[in-house]
Every structure is written in C-alpha cells, then in structure tokens.
C-alpha cells in the first residue's frame, strides 16, 4: 500500500481527535451561553466603549492637529 495513505489518514485522525477533544471540553465548560453580551466582551473598564485606541504618532491627526490625550 502506498505509504502516502498513512499520511492522509493520519491527518484525518488527528483532526478527528482534535475535534472530539474540543467538543468534550466545550460541553464540559458550558460554552456559548451568553451570545447576547458577546460584542462587549472585548471592552473593559480601562479601554471602555467610547475610547478610541489608535492615533497617528504624537496623537496627531493626518492634518497635523493634536488630539486630546487621556
């Protein structure tokens, strides 16, 4: 038998194992129960909603004005 089949089926098995592991872990840890608040999960008290977190160096805008720095 062509040894390449071993590689192909090995990869398929690896994927299978990874998926099953992920699945078991996901069920146990009770994932995906709070879809609603998901969009806010990347913000926190020190980078809250309403804070712009990127600017040209020196806090300048493209026109050369200096923005307020917090």
């Amino acid at each position: 038998m062509n040894p390449i089949y071993a590689v192909v089926w090995g990869v398929v098995a690896l994927f299978g194992v990874t998926a099953v592991y992920g699945l078991v872990w996901a069920i146990r840890s009770g994932q995906m129960r709070d879809f609603g608040r998901g969009a806010l999960s990347i913000f926190d008290d020190e980078e809250p909603v309403g804070m712009v977190t990127d600017a040209f160096p020196g806090g300048q805008t493209a026109d050369g004005e200096t923005g307020d720095r917090s």
Binding site: V12, F15, G16, A19, G22, L23, A26, I27, G30, Q31, M32, R33
Partner: peptide, 17 residues
C-alpha cells in the same frame, strides 16, 4: 447537548465535506 456540538463538528465537517 447545546450549540457547541453544532459549532465544533461543523467547523470540521464543512471542510471534510
């Protein structure tokens, strides 16, 4: 079972399919 089943198996199955 919850949605996680759908998500994990789905990710794998889409490409296998």
């Amino acid at each position: 079972m919850n949605r996680a089943v759908f998500l994990y198996v789905g990710v794998l199955l889409t490409v296998l399919l």
